[in-house]
Structure formats: structure tokens, C-alpha cells
Simulated assay, not measured.
Amino acid sequence: MNKHAYELWLIWQNPQTRQRYHIGRLLHDSDSYSFRYENSGYRRKLKEAMENGYKPHLAFPDINKTYSSNKLFGPFARRLPDNKRPDFHSILQDLGLPTDYTNMDLLRATGGRLATDTYEFVAPIFTSNSHFDFDFYIAGWRHYDGDQIIHNIQPGEQVRFELDPDNEQDSKAVIVLSDKYGKKLGYIPAFYSGFMYEVIKNSSTYNANIATVNPKAVPQLKVNIAVVGKFSKDLNKMDFKKDYEIQLLR
């Protein structure tokens, strides 16, 4: 997974429909943290989430405010493993993190998931000039063929994407398939799929490879995919940024 200046997207999952939405952004700049809701755009963003039952977090009630702090916000810090645990060093090793990790490193690696709610943190999509990159864990893993080949697939192997326009839940759904074995592994998460749908439809070039494989992980964390690509000339990147709120690198 590529490293960039730190930003993480906050994702909310509707507990009834299981659909996930990008509802906020957490940023770490030098010694300060900031959090704001994702008010730009509609598809799989805050506005659509609120229409489908989302209520603002009690610690961040104002959807139009940018919250600031000189340390990681308490509601997010509580999502991190306790560094006083006797097995904490083993946790870092399992997550592939060095001993000089940051809270943002740990939040990204664990997703900040709790059994008591439906929030998680994920990495954003980055672009620099005409290039882009992001990574994701395959969605819907338990419903398809991945477990048949999980002990055979290796980091570095290619996957390919296919559009699924007849998908009743998401007209911009994108299927993930093993290029080597031809098996359907699942889908790109919906908060990324609109972006990738436009990339594919506009004939942009990209490579997608397996970044990590963890057969013992829960289904939604078994396989991570890394994507790098280049926008086609037909794709208006500024409109694209407006629609999908891509993080532009400076």
C-alpha cells in the first residue's frame, strides 16, 4: 500500500442494507488533526447516507463544521488497540507496521473497526497530474469464489475488473476477478466503484494487483488490491474531482 500525506475517509455502513457510504474525512497535518463531513457530491456520500438513515456522530453533531484538535479525537483514538497490551508488538507485526508507527498508520491498518458500531476508516484515492492510485479490500468476499483459491493466490498477481451494469444495488458496480484463475472474488467497495466505473468507461489505463492476502482474517479483510493508473485524455479530471472528491497531491 502506497504512503502519502495523511488523510483517511470515514465510512458508515447502513446496518439494515449493508451499503457503505463515505461520510467524512480525517486529516493529520504536522501536530494537528481535523475532521469534517463529506458534504461534496452525492453518490455514496453524506447526503445519500442521511437519506438512508445516517445520523451525525454525537461527538461531531454539526455537519458543516470543521473540527480541530492537537491530538487524535477521543472517539477515534478509542478505536485503536491499547499499546499497553502484552501482545501489542505482535499486533504491529501482524499489521505490517514498524515500531515507530503513528496513530494514523494504526487507524488505517485496523480500519478502526469496533463490534459495537458500523464505522471504519479507509485510505482515499490519490492523483498526481494524470496518474492515480488507491487500494481497497475486496467487498462481498464471502459470497463468491475467493475461498476456493485463497491458499493459491499470491501478492503481485493481477486481478481484472468488469462492469456490472445490471447490478440491482449499484448500477456502477465493478466486479473483481482473479486474472490467473478466472474466479470472481467480489466487488470494489461502492465508495470507490463510481470512480473506477468512470475510469474504465473512459478507457483510462490501470494495473490492479493483489497487495496482501490473509486467509485467517475476517472476510472483508482477506485480500487487499492495489490499483495504479493514468487518466485518459477523454476524462475531464476537474469534473471528476468535483464528482468523486479525489485527493490531489501537491
Rank of each mutant, 00 (worst) to 15 (best):
D117N: 03
H151L: 10
P86T: 02
D234N: 12
Y181S: 11
W9P: 10
F60R: 00
G74E: 14
L185K: 00
D135K: 01
D29H: 07
T102E: 11
L106C: 08
H22V: 04
F35T: 01
K216P: 15
Y181N: 10
Y187I: 02
M1P: 11
A208Y: 03
T17K: 01
G112L: 06
M238E: 15
V159I: 10
E198V: 04
F73G: 04
D31Q: 09
W9H: 08
N214H: 09
Y42C: 09
D145K: 04
N167P: 10
S171M: 09
Y37T: 02
N214Q: 05
T110S: 10
A49T: 00
F88Y: 06
S178T: 01
H89P: 12
Y206V: 05
K65C: 15
Y197N: 07
G194W: 04
K47V: 15
R85I: 05
M104W: 03
H131W: 10
I91Y: 12
V122M: 11
G146D: 03
I11W: 03
Q19A: 07
A5V: 13
D145G: 11
E157M: 06
W12G: 03
H22D: 15
K230Q: 15
P86W: 02
P219I: 00
P61D: 06
T127P: 14
E48R: 00
G24H: 00
I200V: 08
I225T: 05
Y67R: 02
L163T: 09
N103W: 06
R79A: 07
R44N: 11
Y181C: 12
L97C: 09
L248S: 12
K183N: 15
R78K: 09
S32A: 09
I210T: 06
I210P: 09
K241S: 15
L106G: 12
K242C: 13
L46M: 03
K55W: 10
I149V: 11
D179Y: 04
D170K: 00
K47L: 13
N202W: 05
D133P: 09
T205S: 14
R25A: 14
R43Q: 13
L114E: 14
E120P: 07
K71F: 10
A123M: 06
G74T: 08
N2D: 12
P165K: 00
Y192N: 04
L72N: 02
N224V: 04
Y67E: 14
K84R: 08
G111T: 07
P219W: 01
K183R: 11
